[in-house]
Simulated scan of single mutants.
Amino acid sequence: MTLIFAHRGYSAKYPENTMKAFKEAENAGADGIELDVQLTKDNEIVVIHDDKVDRTTNGSGFVKDFSFAELRRLDASYKHKTILKKEPVPSLKEVLAWLQTNQLQCNIEIKSSAESYMKIEEPLIELIREFALTERVIISSFNHYSIVYCYRLAPEIEIAPLYHEGLYMPWVYARSIKAKGMHPNFRVVPNEIIKASLEFGIEVRPYTVNKEQEMRRLFDIGCTAFITDDPVKAIKIRKEYS
């Protein structure tokens, strides 16, 4: 069965990378969530996509220039007029504690900024181990040095390279860095690449798959999983295949 990961939570309908979006993804029946991590000024790992807070909150400036307490005062749901309750930027600790209450898988993307490389990996691994979630977490990044470093620190946690350009025999590359899976842009993985990767034991979880036609293509060939903004739509289509 092709698994469904909710991209930044159920982000088609709720504020991305918030507890609200993650909980609604669980309620929708998603198999997992995908989220992004960055470091604050006081080295708290927080869940936010951009280097800056401007797009997703009512604040402005770089995440790295905020303390965690300052970041928590911002509202990550202010653009969603239908949501009356303020949604703060979550800490990764908060998300991992919530994951202990369910069986969801979690894809943690390390944002590939130069500031965070070699700073975020060790505390990230410590947290995943502290919450006993090593079996349910996949660490991904466009910075492949970062995930290789994670593998060296914690070979028990799965790593998966993110990429958005066509790779020749990507399963060979994945194996070379000890990755058990890979997370390509859906546009650069034709069916034959997905099939070959699966045959060589490499799991494929394309991103960000929102169109019905693409979802059906991936269900048809038995892709491992895909990452989508709209888990409800994906689950509805998947039911036709069961």
Rank of each mutant, 00 (worst) to 15 (best):
D75I: 08
W171K: 06
S112N: 15
R238Y: 00
T18L: 09
G32P: 08
Q100I: 00
L104F: 04
V137P: 12
M19C: 05
G59Y: 00
S242E: 13
D31I: 05
L167M: 15
S197G: 04
A69M: 12
Y149P: 03
D50H: 08
E126N: 14
L35D: 09
D54Y: 03
L162K: 08
L167K: 13
F219E: 05
S116Q: 13
D50F: 02
E158H: 08
L167C: 03
L167I: 13
G166L: 13
L3N: 08
V37W: 04
E199A: 10
F142R: 11
V63S: 06
T82P: 01
Y78V: 14
L35E: 09
I83A: 05
Q38P: 04
L162V: 14
T224I: 02
A69K: 14
V188L: 12
E126H: 07
E203T: 04
E34M: 12
R136W: 01
E70N: 09
N107P: 13
D230F: 02
A132Q: 12
R136P: 09
K93R: 13
N43P: 05
M169Q: 14
A21D: 06
I235Y: 00
L74R: 11
E24T: 06
K180A: 05
K93W: 00
L167W: 02
I147V: 15
Q103F: 02
Q103V: 04
D54W: 03
S242T: 11
R73V: 08
V53I: 13
Q38L: 15
P90Y: 00
K79H: 06
K13H: 10
A21P: 07
K85A: 10
P90L: 05
I139G: 07
E115C: 04
E70G: 13
M215W: 02
V53C: 11
S112K: 11
